Simulated scan of single mutants.
Amino acid sequence: MTNKTLELLMKRRSQYALGKTLPLSADQAEALIKEAVRQSPSSYNSQSSRAVILFGAESEKVWTLIEAELRKIVPADAFASTEAKMKSFAAGAGTVLFYEDQEAVRTLQEQFPLYADAFPGFSSHSSGMAQLAVWTALAEEGIGASLQHYSPIADAALAEAFGVPAGWKLIAQMPFGSNEAGFQEKTFIDDDARFITLGK
Rank of each mutant, 00 (worst) to 15 (best):
A29G: 07
E69R: 08
E35W: 02
K61S: 10
A76H: 07
T64C: 00
A76F: 05
Q15D: 09
N45F: 13
E30K: 14
S43G: 14
S42M: 01
L18R: 12
A36I: 06
R38Q: 10
L9N: 05
L65R: 01
Q39I: 05
L22F: 06
Q39F: 05
R50K: 08
Q15A: 15
E35G: 06
L9I: 09
T21V: 07
A31G: 08
A51C: 07
R71C: 04
S42E: 04
V74L: 06
D27N: 09
S48W: 00
G56Y: 03
I66K: 00
A36L: 11
A36P: 04
P75M: 13
Q28N: 14
T64S: 14
L54M: 11
V62A: 04
A76G: 10
Y44L: 09
S49D: 06
Q28W: 02
W63L: 03
A76I: 03
A26T: 11
N45I: 03
R12N: 12
A17F: 07
G56E: 02
S48Y: 00
T21I: 07
A36S: 12
S46G: 05
G56P: 04
S48E: 06
S14A: 15
E58T: 14
A57N: 08
Q28T: 08
P41C: 11
I73H: 05
I66G: 01
I73M: 10
K20C: 02
A31N: 03
F55W: 12
S25W: 03
L18D: 08
L65H: 07
